[in-house]
Design a protein around this nucleic acid. Structure first.
Lengths: 124, 124
DNA sequence: TATACAATGATACAAAGATACAATTGTACA
DNA sequence: TGTACAATTGTATCTTTGTATCATTGTATA
């Protein structure tokens, strides 16, 4: 059971307090990879806060690669991120991903140009 | 044996991932007209997903004229996917592939431009 | 004081899950 | 053989959960 303690008089935004405390509980072992966090609404009710505030905190942790939030399912602590890899390896990985993408597009019957355009038009 | 691979961390809805991958396996010959697909419950269990999510994916493919789902019987790949609608689904599948590529590149720490360039430099 | 910005709240939406239902198939038994 | 019934399979609908967008509030600063 996640137990957070917000200070409503603090200068620190509630969102940040939530982020920090979850990180802390992850650091001290109270939260472990794979654990499911409370829903945004449940935690918000408990903390007497708007559920969007919890959602924002979850979003920050998600973008930091610490948790995974999934619409309709819930949010979960991720496995620990792998140690940083070299720039060269990353380059290679990207190249392999790009090749795979092109090949898959080709299998679907698209031309190289169509595949390129599809990426260009995808928003990030 | 249908083998799909869902990315639960992706921004791409699970339903769309399923649609795209079945489309892809049809394109590369892993699935052939007349084949029976797993039941919604069986596939859902394997993918660790609610069976309605699979049912929704099947419905999309059904409406596109690619498969035939029959209550109490099962779902089957149709003999001849009607070109006009199927083209639209294929377009969508390409878009999903492109999105996945961008997202994976992002997770590696690359910018959108770097990802684009990597595709452009990949040979066919 | 006025204005701009950041934080939070309110509301509507989208994706996925839960549950109950309907159609078909298979099987047991008279 | 035919009927009853259980099991299997997809469908309908509502609930749950996170997301997007706009409004409100408070505070810093010109």
């Amino acid at each position: 059971m996640l137990k957070l303690n917000l200070n409503f008089r603090s200068d620190i935004p509630l969102t940040n307090q939530i982020v920090a405390q979850i990180q802390q509980q992850l650091a001290n072992g109270a939260l472990k990879p794979g654990d499911q966090l409370p829903t945004v609404r449940a935690l918000a009710t408990e903390l007497r806060v708007n559920f969007n505030t919890v959602a924002r905190a979850y979003r920050i942790l998600d973008e930091a690669g610490i948790i995974s939030t999934q619409q309709g399912r819930g949010t979960f602590i991720l496995e620990q991120p792998p140690p940083p890899i070299s720039a060269q390896i990353k380059r290679q990985s990207l190249s392999i991903l790009a090749q795979r993408y092109l090949q898959e597009a080709k299998q679907l019957g698209f031309t190289r140009e169509q595949a390129l355009e599809a990426v260009a038009q995808s928003d990030w």
